[in-house]
């Protein structure tokens, strides 16, 4: 085996490993969206975020448009504030849009669903950093069961 051929094969090996790493980064971990692509930020206050986590997806009608970037508590009224990192290409949502925390499947992971509202005016789009006013909290199973039992007792 001459050294030229060995060099070529080792080069191919390194290229294959690099390709595999890029595939893992882009296709498996989705580095593309929040990592390199241009993004902007929206915020939303919820009463209860349930099992939402950082990096949970933000979807519009099932299409992923961004991720949860940060979850914190408002200093004044102690409600959770969720920061959404949205891809730059999705920058025309009306201010009347609403967000809710939804669950995929019965026991699946939780995500933020964005429901675009009506466009009243050309200038009424959500601007970077703006709060989305209309929010719906996560459904918490214990609360649901509690409500169910409560309403039964009232009957």
């Amino acid at each position: 085996m001459n050294s030229r051929k060995i060099e070529v094969l080792v080069g191919l090996f390194v290229a294959l490993a690099a390709a595999a790493l890029i595939m893992l980064a882009l296709k498996v971990a989705d580095r593309g969206l929040s990592g390199n692509g241009e993004t902007y930020i929206l915020k939303a206050k919820f009463d209860n975020i349930g099992g939402l986590k950082v990096r949970s997806p933000v979807k519009v009608g099932g299409v992923v448009i961004g991720r949860v970037g940060n979850i914190s508590l408002d200093d004044d009224d102690f409600t959770p504030v969720v920061t959404l990192i949205i891809g730059k290409e999705f920058d025309k949502f009306p201010q009347t849009s609403s967000v809710s925390i939804l669950t995929s499947g019965l026991l699946g992971e939780q995500y933020v669903g964005l429901q675009p509202g009506f466009m009243l005016d050309e200038n009424d789009v959500l601007k970077p950093g703006q709060y989305i006013e209309d929010t719906k909290s996560a459904l918490v199973l214990e609360d649901l069961i509690g409500q169910f039992l409560f309403s039964r007792n009232n009957d």
Partner: peptide
Amino acid sequence: GSYWSVMQAAVEFDEDI
């Protein structure tokens, strides 16, 4: 779609890879 997108949501580059 869900095979890949749910995977993407769960896998973190730094943490896992």
